[in-house]
Amino acid sequence: MKHVIAASILAGAIALPFAAMAADYTIMAPAAPGGGWDQTARSLQEAMTAEGVSGNVQVVNVPGAGGTIGLAQFAQEANGNPDRLMVGGYVMVGAILTNKSPVTLDAVTPIARLTGEFEVIVVPAASELQTLADLTAKLKADPGSVSWAGGSAGGTDHITAGLFAKTVGADPKLVNYIAFSGGGEALAAVLGNQVTVGISGYGEFQAQVEAGALRVLGVSAPERIAIVDAPTFREGGVDLVVQNWRGIWAGPGLSAEQVAAITADVEKTVNSESWKKVLAAKGWNNTWLAGDDFKAQLATEIENTTAILKDIGLVS
């Protein structure tokens, strides 16, 4: 008897996706299932379906090389097809440069910036570094003595560390950056007192900061943000703002009307209650920026990122 119920529920669970089949948007997440871009794509899928923006939304994962493999494939497959979207973000800007990707963001059509997260610099609670000024002094005196734990080389964390050093007048090439592969490895290294400071998105460190195991020295936001009780870089005397953002792109070769229609659909989704719930649940900020503003901001960022990656020595 129980088996019958189980079987029918199982069948139901499998059959559910059959319910709405009107093929609409296909969103590419240029990463493996589970990461930030995949979560963004799947959350968009949920919100778009819930709001009736689109009857059926598919998510396709094309992992690899900081999203550049997905980007190359997308630029080719989505050419002239207004049903195809791709999630991406700041990490891709750096990855295109460090991987010398032949296909760049010029090959696709930017639609909008969606979410963002600021970077924080943290130290273990027992650390002698109390303020950003202490860190700056130590960094200027002997850059090698400050070991920074963060994500992979050339990623947002590394770029922020390089920009920080450059802003305070230290040589970005001499930043002693220790790359850890994603997840909690960098956090573990900071907690275990293996490195001087940790640098990453606030979400990575939030629980430990709230528990008092880590202390935030500074936030890369332009002004104080509600969730972090710590000064900004600017307040600490370092004139630097960095935001790790995620956005959405469409394929090349679309007409102005098609781009406008896609932008309207995405905007409707982002303004919906379902999306607000997603933002709250995941702790993401809404950083909506569309059209020419987004394009202009993208251009500035590519320029700045190229400069700092050269300074760090990752791009020649």
């Binding site: 589970g34 573990a188 907690l191 939030q206 430990q208 528990a211 649940a281 995941k282």
Partner: peptide, 25 residues
């Protein structure tokens, strides 16, 4: 610790957040 030590754990962390749970100390 709220420390995801594997890819699986990182995804589980995302799952917990969906239930309004913030893993950590």
């Amino acid at each position: 610790l709220g420390l995801p030590t594997s890819a699986t754990a990182a995804i589980m962390l995302a799952g917990f957040q969906q239930y309004g749970l913030q893993p950590g100390p």
